[in-house]
Design a protein around this nucleic acid. Sequence first.
DNA 1: CAGTATCCTGAAGGATACTG
DNA 2: CAGTATCCTTCAGGATACTG
Lengths: 135, 135
Amino acid sequence: MSGTYTGVPSVLAHELPRPVPTDELAACPVGNVFRRLGDKWSMLLVVMLGGRPHRYNELHRAIEGISQRMLTRTLRGLEADGLVRRDVHPTVPPSVEYSLTPLGRTLLEPLSALADWAVAHEPEMREARSRQADG
Amino acid sequence: MSGTYTGVPSVLAHELPRPVPTDELAACPVGNVFRRLGDKWSMLLVVMLGGRPHRYNELHRAIEGISQRMLTRTLRGLEADGLVRRDVHPTVPPSVEYSLTPLGRTLLEPLSALADWAVAHEPEMREARSRQADG
DNA sequence: CAGTATCCTGAAGGATACTG
DNA sequence: CAGTATCCTTCAGGATACTG
């Protein structure tokens, strides 16, 4: 592993072969973003809205298990981060449409990569877990 | 990467144009993996070990802010998922080395994509937040 | 329809002390 | 060195009721 390995995150590769820039890492954008998106619903919502815009109650019905409180909070958070746009149409009754901003759209690609990995390898993870349950 | 990018996560693309397979989505591998890796330290540790193997106290020192309890727990979790390998060298004093498994290595690529995105776009997210602080 | 406002619980995670 | 064992706090997130 002395050469340039593709499997090392490119962001970090240029820092090597130092023991890895760890406290920088912990305080760096990566950590921040991971923590912002690492809650229960954010990534899911981004993926949902990546398909097409949705209205509030539409999301509420679609995402079985999410509470109104968390739906609102998560959407507001994503909006504050500039990932989601909230459009209020002053109709009666009011209608609010949520969609991805251009910034939000750029997130779909890496999220897709992770999702693909999940689909491809989650069975292996599950198997590893069950193996250790017996073993 | 995972082929031509449509703007919609490829895992989900084949499900469209349905309103999006949401409860499936919530119960699918993607959700599981997101939740397993979505804790405070897992992704960080995978990235760390992606650089090279580390010993326990080395990680403890490197990752400022992590408690012994959480370091152990997170490593054990990753090990149970088959992402991390734990090698005990029966020396005196004992030395334990943690490294990525082959499965764990495959995770570095999508994680890298996310990390790259974070580095590239986290400033925009931060700016969006501050903009709304002023309002 | 699209939310607030409250209350409440469980789990995540930190601090500290101790051990083979 | 590489952990356990305990205790404690915080807060993410759910449930429920109410509103413009």
